[in-house]
Design a protein around this nucleic acid. Sequence first.
DNA 1: ATAACTTGTGCCACTGAGTGGCAGCATCCG
DNA 2: CGGATGCTGCCACTCAGTGGCACAAGTTAT
Lengths: 241, 241
Amino acid sequence: MSTSAGSPADTVNRGDLAPVPGVPRGGDLPLRERKKLRTRRALADAALRLFTERGFEATTLDQVVGAVEVSKRTFFRNFSCKEEAVLTGETELWGEFVTALADRDLCGMLLTAVGDTLLDTVRSIVEISGDDQWWDRYLRERRLLADTPTLRAYGMVFCANVQREIVSQVGARLGLGPAGDLRLRLLVDQVVVAWRCATEDWITAGGADGAEGVHARLAQALAALPTSLALTAAECTAGVP
Amino acid sequence: MSTSAGSPADTVNRGDLAPVPGVPRGGDLPLRERKKLRTRRALADAALRLFTERGFEATTLDQVVGAVEVSKRTFFRNFSCKEEAVLTGETELWGEFVTALADRDLCGMLLTAVGDTLLDTVRSIVEISGDDQWWDRYLRERRLLADTPTLRAYGMVFCANVQREIVSQVGARLGLGPAGDLRLRLLVDQVVVAWRCATEDWITAGGADGAEGVHARLAQALAALPTSLALTAAECTAGVP
DNA sequence: ATAACTTGTGCCACTGAGTGGCAGCATCCG
DNA sequence: CGGATGCTGCCACTCAGTGGCACAAGTTAT
């Protein structure tokens, strides 16, 4: 089977979170696969560039594949839909997070284990991907996402799938039923919301400092989690960001 | 302008949560609008029925409009996309919730205000809609949603839009900036997750007892919220649902 | 009642995403 | 070197969704 290209009728696939056989690193692969990987990269780059320049909806897939001089059929052998070609950073990051979490000891508070794993992934993604410009590309990706409803929707669904993956993985290791514990689900959900808030703030602030910029904001957001449920209307004067 | 039919390139519209001028009740409207409303209802019914029988992806819009003997163009004047015709219950419920919340006093814990409003909406939706079969239809809607990825995705995006609406409304009343307080966002998010967990459990259990079945599970899920962040791996033996 | 308006509808042609199938060609392996 | 494998281009096709226009049903004013 191809790298992605999910089952039909599946807008957002990634039911198969995993290292994604050979998407990030392409060091010692056979020639043919390196070629395919190069095409994939070229498509993702062209897509991000063209979508940013002319807008996601206004840009035709034919324009994208034309820029790379590849047939439309080849595009869909690399990505399951137009949206997926944009979210390469998000996909890579969460894929690494899931594998990192699988290797992590779950003793102590789950919030700590999950939160710290995410914080660690933020710091190590550049090294893992071997791409110095990783955060730069991720920023462009997220900026495009921010003002494209279709992409926002796709990103949200993607995140939801990642959440299910995490809940299912952790739930299995803890011996919970497949339905999963309500509290586990809530916990994972809150971590993801913290991630969303942190990165959105980072982008709004200009997207400076790459990993450290995100790391600091994420740590802050995670720390704010326990206080959220106690929120009252009376506190509206002293706004805690 | 038509009832819905969002701006182009907007997969899920509903940026305009509001009573939806005359979608639920159609008591004393002019003849023409009642006719249109009847067509809308017929389309939604046919869509839910056909999608359930033959599957969402396998059913063509032409089949749906054929069953109602209406042109495809008319379908898109009533719904912005194929998915929207299914989620009428969800749309109605959250629309009512948002108006109910706007009328509610926000003193005390916000979690209580938001949670209780949702609980109240669950109990009053039958009366408000004037449809005795409301929960029956909602159950069929959600069952279809459960095994259709595309619809799940749409539902999630819809929920996210509702969340933004709530955060924006409450944030404005509390004098928070448009960016919103992180904690407010987290709180609203958790209530919605509680809703999702509660209704999913209700559906899995067979969808019995309509409003009361959902009400009980929702109350239970809301009560479990404060304990979620303290979750540890050690608790895995005594599974608290 | 009739004229003048508004508004929902049908029809038609069109774009663009995504799929299936097949033939050709490069790469890999014995 | 020759066959197996797998990627690619091409072509025809389905189907969601849109724009435009003519028409008819409903509404209001004279």
